[in-house]
Design a protein around this nucleic acid. Sequence first.
DNA 1: AGTTTTGCACTGACCAGTCAGTTCAAAAAG
DNA 2: CTTTTTGAACTGACTGGTCAGTGCAAAACT
Lengths: 223, 223
Amino acid sequence: MTAHRTVPVTIRAMESSNAPGGTGGGRREATRQKLYEAAVTLIAEQGFSATTVDEIAERAGVAKGTVYYNFASKSVLFEELLRHGVGLLTASLREAADRSAEGGGSRVDALDAMIRAGLVFIDRYPSFTQLYVAELWRTNRAWQSTLMVVRQEAVAVVEKVLREGVEADELSDEIDIGLTASALVGMVLVAALDWKAFQPERSLDDVHSALSRLLQGRVSGNR
Amino acid sequence: MTAHRTVPVTIRAMESSNAPGGTGGGRREATRQKLYEAAVTLIAEQGFSATTVDEIAERAGVAKGTVYYNFASKSVLFEELLRHGVGLLTASLREAADRSAEGGGSRVDALDAMIRAGLVFIDRYPSFTQLYVAELWRTNRAWQSTLMVVRQEAVAVVEKVLREGVEADELSDEIDIGLTASALVGMVLVAALDWKAFQPERSLDDVHSALSRLLQGRVSGNR
DNA sequence: AGTTTTGCACTGACCAGTCAGTTCAAAAAG
DNA sequence: CTTTTTGAACTGACTGGTCAGTGCAAAACT
């Protein structure tokens, strides 16, 4: 670390912490948001290494220095982007499960609601999803541990519902919770990415019903 | 970080008469194979852009010049690697489906056999799978069209079996062939990658039976 | 009030390092 | 002999990160 200013940055950092609800404006936060949006599309298209900081800055409409004013490094920007995005997904899944439970639905209904929530998320943030999938199983990367943590948070939501379903005898107690959760996530992920990539004109309901059918085993049973 | 510099490139030149297995000629082909293997692991770990040609050459145990003697460019090497790998997968899936059909199995049995074939493939070539998933939904990349072609070849095998299953009234005629195929592929892909990444000690049979159960809708029915 | 100071947020030219790709003479392999 | 590989030097473009400096709005001061 090189101290490149006569005045202590540490102190300033503390007093300049953006107030949570107060500043509706928040110039800094707005800039960071713009950088997230720029980075997410570029990295989804080209990958992390192939995307330059100059590109991100240009797309966001800020100077390169601004990127480094707001984030310690390119990797840190990406890592925080990852946390931000998966946080949104996890919250969305959790809300869908809870809402379904409150409405008195079964656990299978909750799973179905989560599938829909997943589709809605991917529909809204296709680039982020793309980027997430592309990075998830890589190794030897700086943000690997971060990725593990957020992945686990998201998968845990699905696993919880599966576990409750087994306990309530709605689901077979022979299923492998972890593997089934992975498989379900994969099902939604890949189907949705293919949807957005190759048939973006189809409706969400359409895709949802196809996956719903698969989930409830109404595939092998003939009409 | 690169610690493996055990010296003597000069000496290696003399002992380089390694003809593994002795493929009866094809020295060139053997070199290309070594380069494939080196490239696939490195790119799976780090991504295409973050992997340098020098690294690939070093890992393969050849000189940098050799890479460019055998491939026109880094991209071309990668593209041919992609074709090579997906070719193996497609052949494997097709064989599994055919063998199941010959054995007089139902279409659902064929699907199950393909799931197993997929798992076997991923078990044998985890790095390739990883790399494939990471690149599949990217856009604006040089090898995009190549990727589309090979993807379609692989998915078509699954779709064909689904179509036959519908015609034979084994599967509901309300299923969406394309979407269901995507979903099945995603199910296997993600479950298998998670398996290799987080629980590599589990047996293939174990994973297969979990996915089999999901396929045949034996999840929501209680024991 | 008007004037000066403060310091946050941002800028963009610049630097030091990296990498794909080239070249080529010479050696090894067959 | 021909084909293939070697290995090292070299180039030229590109990139992550830096830093001295700018603009401006709120605070401090008179």
